[in-house]
Structures are given as structure tokens and as C-alpha cells.
Design a protein around this nucleic acid. Structure first.
Length: 558
RNA sequence: GCGCCCGUAGCUCAGCUGGAUAGAGCAUCGGCCUUCUAAGCCGAGGGUCCCAGGUUCGAGUCCUGGCGGGCGUACCA
């Protein structure tokens, strides 16, 4: 019995009553007394059909009761339909989960269409910080959620390897370089002060000696720029790999210039008649498309603003045939959203392209105090330092467990805790505990659990609740994907892990051995192990979506 | 000033297209170990859902106006 079958019956009933294309909820009620599944369909139909919701509910009830597997239906409260399933029908989902295994939870909503998720996109001016970490976790999880929803996903990292910030980095490297060769030299205003700049300078001495000691030419600065960008890009990739995040493509801003894309974009924008010259600069009428004000494309000194390559870059996304694009960015960039979209609309791209997911920033707390434990970066905490401290899985989970648009306080005390208080460990332990059951079953020489165990034997309320929870995984996954909201999966996994732990504990050998999974009664044992196996699959699939390992046994760090 | 985001238990936060008695974790308090690993489980207390109006059968959720916090508001990126 899947909820889809019930949903279909509800839709048919609505059609008979004269309402097509309806929206309603069909989910697991919070209170088990409200059945295995509950729907508000009669309430939503009420205003449309101009009839009291309870009358509508009564009619639908009669229809639902004839559906195979439905034990009984109750009309409750203002007109809710509470569906109680027969034991075997309720547990049927366990069989399906075991058949689908690692595919349980997937859907084909994306129909194999292409989508690009652009995320991290850190400039190579320093090591990745915690905001990048949150973004890496978010972007990767959203990408995976979309893959599970049937999309072909392209993960892309855009980086700015030219322009003012990079020039300041190169100047900072030159200052450190000359310092290390004994000169009195100051970091320029707006330059970079972190220790890593000195490391880059040292590496340059190792590589090129004092070749640039008294060379103030553009070519020398260009060499330092290239050197610094190379090292920092490599470091970022190493950090991302340690975090378990991999990209399909790294797209450098410089390519937009070298292949003429920026120049072409300028021509195309000029061709729209929406550009004009004012105060010696070239402007675009972005205010025609909802931007707060018009924007400068080319500065008085003849150089482009960031706006121009940004528009050009998004044009390449469109031309590369990505009509669906999600940009994951920090909310400190939200001012660019309207102007980039406006620039693209001027060129005839659809309004609302691309989609943006803006996330809030991250702070770390230990003992209730904010900490900034960076040694290398100077003013901020790096992702690498955090991962070294708590591990990639914990960091990922903590970055994902809050809504993107909410500020994230990273509780380092909780992150370092290895008990079930730590939500990551709670979920991992639940998975490992269940795996342990199968290990013991094998040791005792019990055969593999057959696919057709008598699931109706799972009649304890706790078991029914767990079954209903496992049934909901695909719905949560769908909701997390469409809402770009991985935290929905975190909430789901914590709830599921809690139920698994309770169920496991209920079979405690000294308290109620008759409730244990590993009982001598073969039929009962197989029924319970069927539930355990389904739970194991759901926990593992959920963790996999988040990019977190599902261990078969836990090894404690001392 | 203007724009976006946030305001829910002591703390950190969930709460999907408006639905039943507003939930979870942490913290606090009280129980439970000769174990399918207690790295755990069971239970309890704890709420002006920031405030004030409005919309309706029904508002934490939608609308309007305030208050408080964050981030933006460049010929920086």
C-alpha cells in the first residue's frame, strides 16, 4: 500500500464530486490515533464545492473504504479523513523498500532534463572560509537531491582570476616577496594580510629565486598573479576534496575575455538600444527590468565593471543549453541578483533566470562564545581548519541542518560530541545499530531474511509508527528537492533515527526480550528484520543524499 | 532613507500549497544497565509563535502598519 494509491483514490473521488486538479495534503498525522495517513482534502474542497467539509468527507470516506488494503476511514475534527490501513497493507512498503534498495526515494520529476548548480565560486584570493563551506555543503546536497529527482546535474565553480581583487592579491604577494628578500615593504591598502600570502611568496622564492626582486614591471606582477592564483586554486580544490565536494567544471572569468564573450555581450547590449553614455561611462537601463537603478557596464577609465562579465557568464550558461540554473550564493551578494537578471532580460532571456538560492553566514561558538580560530587566514576561520577539527561528515551535516536563509550558529561543543546528542552521530548510530542486528543474525546462523516475510506480525504501535515514517521518505525527498532545502532531510533523518533507536531499545533483552528483533520465532524474526532492513536502507539513502557516510559500525575516537 | 532575509520553549532551531492539542535537539529534573553495544531508552516541567490591526469556517503560516536584529544599497568583487 503506497500513499500514491490513496492519493489517486482521493483525486478520483474529487473528480466525481466535480472538482479537478485539486491540491491537498496526504501525510502521516502527528498523532497515531489519527490513523496511518490523513488528508485535508475535504477541507480544501469545501469552499470550491460550497458544501460543508464534513459532508464531503463522508462521501469520500465511503469511496476510500472500498480501496484494497484500507481497514477503515474516520471523519474527524472539521473534516479530516483519517485512513487506517490493514497491517499487511501498511507494511507492504517495507517490501518495496527492500526491492528498490539504494533507489528508494528517487523520482523522475526532472525527466532527465539538464540543470546547472553553480556554487562556492570563491575567488582565488585566499583559503575557503566557513561561508564557502556552508555553500559547498548546500550546493552539493541540492545537486544530489536534483539527481535523485531525475535531473542531469552539472556542478560548476566560477572563479574570478582577473580584476581588481586579484591585482591587490598580486601586489600583496610582491610586498611579502620583497620583505622576505630583505626589503622594507608595506602591504598596499586593501591588500591581503593573511599568513598564506607569505607562504605564497616563499614558494615563489623557492621557484624563481630573486628574479623579480627589483622588477616592478607589469610582466613581473602578472607572473606573481598567475603563481598566486595557481596555488590558491589548488589549495581550494584540496580543501573541497577533503570535504567530499567535486565539480564537473571550473569556469575562469578570464575565459570570458579570451574567447570574446564579454566583447560580444557589450555589442549585443548596445544593439538593444538600452545603453547610454553618462559622465564618461557606459550604462545599461537595468531599471527597465526591475532593478533599483541603472548600472554602469564600462567605467570612465574604459574597464568593465563586474556586472559585465557576470552577464556574459550567464549568457554562456544559457548558450551551453542550461535553461535551468540554480546559483547558490551568500546573501551578501543579493544586490547582484536583480541587476544580473535585468542584464539578461535586456538580451531577451526569460525573467527570473537564473534561480538564486541565497544563504546566510556562519559563526562558530564554543562554550557560548564566538570563536575565530584561524591562524592562516587572519580575519576568518577556514573550512580546512573546521574540517580538521570536527571531520567532514559533522561539518557537512551542521551546515545543512538549518534553512539556508537562516543565520547558522555552528556549535563546536555539540559538533565535537560523539554521543547521540550530536544529531549526526545519532543518525549514524541508528544505522550502525541496525547493521549490528544483521551481523548477529549471521553469527547465529540464521538465514537471509526472505522477501515475503509476514509483515502483518508487526503490530506494535511503535512498529507501525516506524513503518509510516519510512513510507514518507520519498515525499520528504521530493519536498527537499523542490524547496532547495536539504535541512528537510536532516529533520527527517533525526526523526527516523529516534524511532529506530526507540524500537531497538524496546527489544532490550533484560526488559522485554519478546520484543527483540532476534527472537527464536522465525516468522516473527523475519518480519522484524524486514523492518530493520528497510530502516537501514532509508537511513543510508538519506545520508547519501547529504554526502555523509553511513557506517556499518562505529569506532570511537578516544 | 530604500531593498532582501530573520524574529517560535532558558539556548539552537523545525513547522511544506493556511488545517486537528505549535514540535525537535540541547540544557534542567525524575526513572531504567548480569544488554540484539546504556555511545542508549522512558517520563516531566518549560510558549504573549516580536507588537497591533486585517482577511476566513480556521492564521506561527497570508495582507497592512510598527518594533528589534542581520546583510546589502559603488564607475569594489
Amino acid at each position: 500500500m503506497s500513499s500514491e494509491q490513496i492519493a489517486e483514490a482521493l483525486r478520483e473521488a474529487a473528480t466525481e464530486l466535480g472538482a479537478d486538479d485539486i491540491r491537498f495534503r496526504l501525510d502521516r498525522p502527528k498523532d497515531a490515533r489519527h490513523g496511518d495517513l490523513a488528508s485535508n482534502v475535504a477541507l480544501t474542497l469545501s469552499s470550491r464545492l460550497r458544501r460543508p467539509p464534513r459532508d464531503i468527507a463522508e462521501e469520500i470516506k465511503t469511496r476510500l473504504e472500498s480501496v484494497a488494503g484500507v481497514d477503515r476511514v474516520e471523519v474527524a475534527g472539521p473534516g479530516f479523513l483519517n485512513v487506517f490501513l490493514e497491517g499487511a497493507a501498511a507494511g507492504e512498503v517495507l517490501r518495496r523498500i527492500r526491492v528498490l534498495g539504494g533507489r528508494y526515494g528517487r523520482n523522475d520529476a526532472g525527466a532527465e532534463r539538464r540543470v546547472m548548480v553553480e556554487f562556492v565560486s570563491a575567488n582565488p584570493t585566499g583559503p575557503l572560509h566557513l561561508g564557502h563551506g556552508r555553500q559547498a555543503a548546500l550546493g552539493d546536497a541540492i545537486a544530489t537531491l536534483l539527481e535523485w529527482s531525475g535531473w542531469q546535474v552539472h556542478r560548476e565553480f566560477y572563479f574570478n582570476d582577473a580584476g581588481g581583487q586579484i591585482a591587490r592579491l598580486a601586489q600583496s604577494v610582491r610586498a611579502r616577496y620583497r620583505q622576505q628578500l630583505g626589503h622594507d615593504e608595506a602591504i598596499p591598502d586593501g591588500g591581503y594580510h593573511g599568513d598564506y600570502v607569505s607562504e605564497i611568496a616563499r614558494a615563489l622564492i623557492d621557484e624563481a629565486g630573486n628574479r623579480y626582486e627589483n622588477d616592478s614591471s607589469e610582466a613581473a606582477l602578472e607572473a606573481m598573479r598567475g603563481h598566486a592564483v595557481r596555488l590558491l586554486r589548488r589549495e581550494q580544490e584540496v580543501d573541497l576534496a577533503a570535504f567530499g565536494v567535486h565539480f564537473d567544471e571550473y569556469y575562469p572569468e578570464s575565459r570570458l575575455y579570451s574567447d570574446g564573450c564579454v566583447a560580444r555581450t557589450v555589442r549585443d547590449l548596445d544593439g538593444t538600444g538600452l545603453t547610454y553614455r553618462k559622465d564618461g561611462a557606459d550604462w545599461l537601463r537595468t531599471s527597465e527590468f526591475g532593478d533599483q537603478k541603472d548600472r554602469v557596464m564600462v567605467k570612465r577609465d574604459g574597464s568593465p565593471t563586474y556586472f559585465l562579465p557576470d552577464v556574459a557568464y550567464h549568457v554562456t550558461k544559457w548558450e551551453r543549453d542550461f535553461t535551468e540554473v540554480i546559483n547558490v550564493q551568500g546573501s551578501d551578494h543579493h544586490s547582484t541578483v536583480d541587476r544580473v537578471r535585468a542584464g539578461l532580460q535586456a538580451l531577451g532571456l526569460p525573467a527570473g533566470y537564473p534561480e538564486y538560492l541565497l544563504h546566510q553566514m556562519v559563526t562558530v561558538e564554543k562554550g557560548g562564545e564566538e570563536v575565530k580560530f584561524s591562524k592562516r587566514a587572519g580575519s576568518y576561520t577556514t573550512l580546512a581548519e573546521l574540517v580538521a577539527e570536527v571531520g567532514a561528515d559533522v561539518a557537512r551535516y551542521f551546515f545543512l541542518m538549518r534553512r539556508p536563509e537562516a543565520h547558522l550558529t555552528f556549535d563546536l561543543d555539540l559538533a565535537l560530541d560523539q554521543s547521540d546528542k550530536n544529531p549526526v552521530y545519532k543518525v549514524k548510530y541508528a544505522h550502525a545499530r541496525v547493521c549490528r542486528l544483521f551481523e548477529l543474525a549471521r553469527k547465529r546462523g540464521w538465514a537471509e531474511v526472505p522477501p515475503d516475510a509476514d509483515i502483518a506480525l508487526l503490530d506494535a504501535p511503535m512498529e507501525r509508527e516506524l513503518i509510516n515514517q519510512l513510507r514518507e521518505f520519498p515525499a520528504f525527498l521530493r519536498r527537499a528537492a523542490t524547496g532547495r532545502a536539504p535541512h528537510v532531510i536532516c529533520d527527517y533523518l533525526e526523526k527516523t533515527a529516534g524511532l529506530v533507536n526507540s524500537w531497538y531499545q524496546a527489544g532490550h533483552p533484560t526488559r522485554s526480550p519478546e520484543q527483540a528483533a532476534l527472537v527464536d520465532d522465525e516468522a516473527l524474526r523475519n518480519a522484524r528484520l524486514t523492518l530493520a532492513d528497510a530502516a537501514r536502507i532509508v537511513l543510508r539513502n538519506g545520508l547519501q543524499v547529504l554526502g555523509i557516510e553511513a557506517p556499518e559500525r562505529m569506532v570511537r575516537d578516544e
